[in-house]
Amino acid sequence: MRTIFLLTAAVAASIGGCSAVPSREPARPAGDAGRDAAVAALMRDYIGRVPGASVLVLHEGRPLLRRGYGLANLEAATAATPQTHYRLASVSKQFTSAAVLLLAEDGKLRLDDPIKRWLPSLPAACDAMTIRQLLSHTSGLIDYEEVMPHGRYDDGERQMRDADVLRVLEGQNRAYFAAGRGYHYSNSGYALLALIVEQASGRRYAEFLRERIFLPLGMHDAVAYERGVSEVAHRAYGYSFEQGRWRRTDQSPTSAVLGDGGVYASIDDLPRWDAALYDDRLLSAASRRLAFAPHTPTDQAEVEYGYGWRITGETLWHSGESIGFRNVFVRWPQRRLSVAVLSNRNEPEPYRLALKIAELYLPDAPIH
């Protein structure tokens, strides 16, 4: 579930800068028909009897493009549509962050709480780690993917869950660096945040997201998916291109971990989420400022990290990869523009594709 991103153009590192767009872009077409044709050309590899994608362009809260390409299910020949629900992978982290911030607003937890206040079984190496550091990947916590038990999850049936991440980390009395003294992208941290949400709220993590975020915003089919507990409406299944053909690779041993990547949503859900990030309908202005503030540099010179959001120039974004899925959600809040590309395939990563699509819809305001 690691997030993979590739940035190849230099950009400003401050919120007021401009975000990168690859060079040598085609001329921007005029009119809706021209833009539609240009997007279709960009999406040509997703069209036909292949794993597909759903693409959203929002401007001033209005969908300028909401369209599916290719197939959500190859075996059933089910087309990808705006209603198709994809596993968001690490794009899910923004929902985990929002859940923590809601509980902080409720007075149920404090961002500077030591994580062992809520998860006391963690080893001594975690004594100084705080919730705030988990949110910004500055805790130094060990990656659970690196220390998973060999053989236990290799049969394709058993999967790790957030509680299993805790159990694995209980045996890791070490850290990558002293808490707060570095940056290391951490799926472990967001799995533990989901458990802290459960402890502080008294609700299962998936229930908390549904009751406090998804239903209030009208994201009725969005779900933190739990096999045997919930279902995914209009579900896309993930595929990987192997030995010259597409093979279904929908689930991995870590796909059941919710806090770092377990949310399924559609491009018809994302406008409701996007709208809530501009006003107080979900989070207070103070909480939104915390989520969108650059708390730490990352291992990419152009990118800083907030709480569940990457920050590159004026953009707030996150990409997500899981076996068989590649997604990105990019926002230009100052321009009231957002672009999402959700796909059910292992490649390519869609970050630069989203930037190319964005340029088509702001012909008088270049974003590079």
Rank of each mutant, 00 (worst) to 15 (best):
I4F: 13
I4K: 11
I4H: 06
L7A: 09
L7N: 09
V11K: 05
I15D: 01
I15Q: 11
G16K: 11
S19F: 01
A20K: 08
P22K: 12
R24D: 15
A30P: 01
A33H: 10
R35Y: 10
M43E: 11
R49A: 15
R49F: 07
S54T: 12
L58R: 05
E60W: 13
P63N: 13
L65T: 04
G68P: 12
G70M: 08
G70W: 10
T78E: 15
A80T: 15
A80L: 06
P82E: 03
L88S: 00
L88H: 05
V91S: 08
V91T: 13
V91H: 06
Q94F: 06
T96V: 07
T96L: 05
T96W: 02
A98T: 09
A98R: 09
L103W: 07
L103A: 04
A104L: 03
G107Y: 07
L111H: 11
L111G: 02
P114T: 13
K116A: 01
P120H: 12
S121R: 10
S121C: 07
P123H: 11
D127Y: 04
A128H: 12
I131G: 03
Q133R: 11
E146A: 15
V147F: 14
D155V: 07
D162A: 02
L166C: 06
V168Q: 08
Q172V: 14
Y176C: 11
F177L: 13
Y183N: 01
N187H: 09
Y190M: 08
L193A: 01
A200E: 02
G202W: 04
G202F: 07
Y205G: 02
R210C: 08
E211R: 15
I213L: 06
P216H: 03
M219F: 10
D221I: 02
A224H: 04
Y225K: 09
R227E: 15
R227H: 15
V229P: 06
V229E: 11
V232I: 06
G244N: 05
W246K: 01
Q251I: 09
S252Q: 09
T254I: 15
V263R: 01
Y264S: 13
A265L: 07
S266I: 00
D269T: 02
W273Q: 10
W273T: 02
A275D: 14
A275N: 10
A275T: 08
A275C: 09
L277H: 03
D279Y: 00
L283E: 02
S284M: 06
A285Q: 14
A285Y: 09
A286G: 04
S287D: 00
R288M: 02
A291Y: 00
F292H: 12
A293F: 12
P297S: 13
D299H: 13
Y305Q: 06
G308R: 05
W317Q: 11
E321V: 14
G324V: 11
N327M: 00
Q334R: 15
R336P: 01
L337Q: 04
N344G: 10
P348Y: 04
Y351S: 03
A354D: 07
Y361L: 02
I367H: 14
